[in-house]
């Protein structure tokens, strides 16, 4: 190499190899701090979350003793009980309720997110805050207020009766529709937020171009807005489906004995029936449905992403 450097005073060649060997790695030593920071949270989550989930799985193979306390075992009875028509119906109903809730949330959230994201002007941020903030208010209190509103002599039914849309026998509470109304009220925000974010990101000139191409606003919405926000909608469906599937409050406050969901069964096995192994098996069944849903969503999302980057 042709370097015009000042003349070397000495060339310390002899000591080089030795020095390299005993040199501690400064950046490696510094990086240990990140391990120490990661460790406490990881250990905490491993013990109190992962281990406890594994315990649920283990207990679902267990039995109860005379006192009703759970015992470990290799009992397949609890898992077999899941195929019992009574339990199977509840699980199918939960699935149906959660799916319907997702669809209804989608139908509500699209126009709301569209109006707020694209037509609210400078009130956009205030409006989206006005949607988000109430959802941090206590879930029980909100659900209670909702049940009062929809009760048999509550304002909604009185209004509907007054305009002739309902008669004296029309009910919302204690019906499946009531339970779904509760779930929608509880979780619709999880649909609005991702959709709103997707619409905000959307290039609005697309809509203008869509007007040119497709004419009517409905066709434009279907051919332009919906495809552009599909990922947001997908995320929203998952975010609504997961808590709706596991909910037991809505069925209690808004439904009757014929509308119970899997969450109510689990609650019952742990608090009233004292059959923890069966409760654990039901919990595992719930978790399995959710993991399948989640897995399906992630695969779909990854496929979409791959197509988008292609």
């Amino acid at each position: 190499m042709a370097l015009r450097t000042p003349v070397r005073t000495e060339a310390p060649r002899g000591g080089r190899t030795a020095r390299r060997d005993r040199r501690p790695r400064p950046s490696a030593a510094g990086a240990r701090i990140w391990t120490w920071l990661t460790l406490p949270g990881t250990v905490w989550m491993s013990v109190f979350f992962i281990a406890s989930l594994l315990l649920v799985a283990a207990i679902s193979f267990g039995t109860t003793d005379q006192l009703g306390d759970p015992r470990f075992g290799t009992n397949l009875g609890n898992l077999q009980a899941l195929t019992d028509p009574a339990y199977r119906d509840v699980m199918l109903r939960s699935l149906g309720f959660a799916l319907l809730t997702s669809v209804i949330c989608l139908l509500i959230a699209y126009p709301v997110a569209y109006a707020v994201a694209l037509h609210a002007g400078r009130f956009k941020n205030a409006l989206i805050a006005a949607i988000v903030v109430p959802f941090f208010a206590n879930y029980l209190v909100r659900m209670y207020g909702w049940s009062v509103l929809l009760s048999d002599d509550g304002p909604v039914l009185r209004l509907l009766r007054a305009v002739g849309l309902a008669d004296a026998h029309t009910k919302i509470l204690n019906t499946g529709f009531g339970v779904i109304a509760g779930l929608v009220y509880g979780f619709v925000v999880f649909m609005i937020i991702p959709l709103y974010a997707a619409m905000e990101r959307m290039d609005t000139s697309l809509i203008e171009a869509g007007r040119d191409l497709y004419g009517g606003p409905l066709r434009t919405f279907w051919f332009v807005t919906v495809p552009a926000t599909r990922q947001g909608a997908g995320a929203g469906v998952v975010l609504v489906f997961l808590p709706a599937m596991g909910d037991f409050v809505s069925a209690q406050f808004m439904g009757g004995p014929n509308q119970i969901m899997i969450g109510n069964l689990i609650q019952d096995k742990f608090f009233e029936g004292q059959d923890w192994p069966l409760g654990s098996a039901l919990t595992m069944a719930l978790m399995a449905v959710l993991l399948i849903a989640m897995f399906g969503y992630l695969r779909r999302a990854r496929k979409d992403e791959a197509e988008a980057t292609r």
Binding site: F48, F49, A51, S52, L53, L55, V56, I59, P70, L242, P243, M245, G246, D247, F248, G263, I266, Q267, F270, W276, G279, S280, T283, L286, M287, L290
Partner: peptide
């Protein structure tokens, strides 16, 4: 879902 976390914590 919270109910799963709840059940798991209770068992633990």
């Amino acid at each position: 879902p919270e109910i799963v976390t709840g059940v798991a914590s209770l068992l633990l």
